[in-house]
């Protein structure tokens, strides 16, 4: 439900994997081919002296450029980490105050996701096949979506649970006067493992 950029996640994993594969493959294959190994180790030996000269103070700008590049990459990666898992919202619905005669409200109306949470949890708590309910709101494609997660008792029919939640949603729609998108998750989490199976069929 979050707005995590999944393509970026997979791209990072793919690029790191590709770099490791190419580097490791080149080392392994190069070491096995005697000619390649001789050439490479020879030129590496030739390069040792100039490299160590450049890095030991002859060319200090290389070190500064390296440090700045490392800093930029670190900032990029931090941005990448902290933009994961966003998209939760506290507001479910906002109705702007209209102008003119026909408008229903004089001011802006904001309905908190908490309202939906309390109403739906209250009405679903009575269902014996549901152990616990969690309701939260997310912003998906500029629309606020309500997510209802229901943990079921072991062995209950997911169809029945769905039907009962759909009924609760219909009641909520009637109360709200409009329909916001709703996603239902029916899970068997830890609590449903610990509670007993449903006895009445």
């Amino acid at each position: 439900m979050t707005s995590t950029n999944r393509f970026l996640n997979r791209l990072l994993v793919f690029v790191v994997g590709l770099v490791l594969l190419l580097a490791g493959g080149a080392v392994a294959a190069g070491a096995l081919l005697a000619d390649v190994k001789k050439n490479v180790s020879q030129s590496a030996k030739d390069a040792t002296q100039p490299t160590s000269d450049a890095l030991s103070g002859g060319q200090p700008w290389i070190l500064w450029v390296t440090a700045v590049a490392a800093l930029v990459l670190i900032l990029l990666l931090l941005w990448f980490i902290f933009r994961q898992g966003r998209g939760r919202t506290n507001t479910l619905l906002e109705v702007a105050g209209g102008e003119g005669k026909g408008s229903p409200t004089g001011g802006t109306l904001t309905i908190d996701a908490k309202v939906a949470e309390q109403v739906l949890e209250e009405s679903l708590a009575r269902d014996p096949s549901i152990v616990s309910v969690d309701v939260s709101a997310f912003e998906v494609k500029k629309e606020n979506v309500l997510r209802i997660t229901a943990q079921t008792r072991r062995g209950v029919s997911p169809i029945e649970v769905r039907r009962s939640i759909d009924r609760a949603v219909a009641d909520w729609d009637a109360l709200l006067g409009t329909a916001t998108p709703v996603v239902i998750q029916i899970t068997g989490g830890l609590r449903s493992q610990l509670t007993g199976t449903s006895r009445v069929v």
Binding site: G17, G24, G30, A31
Partner: peptide, 21 residues
């Protein structure tokens, strides 16, 4: 030694590529 080290790194790379795709 080089071959072993390279092979290990390459296998990790392959696993990551599979996870990505």
């Amino acid at each position: 030694l080089l071959t072993a080290a390279g092979a290990v790194v390459a296998v990790i790379g392959i696993i990551l590529i599979i996870v990505a795709l």
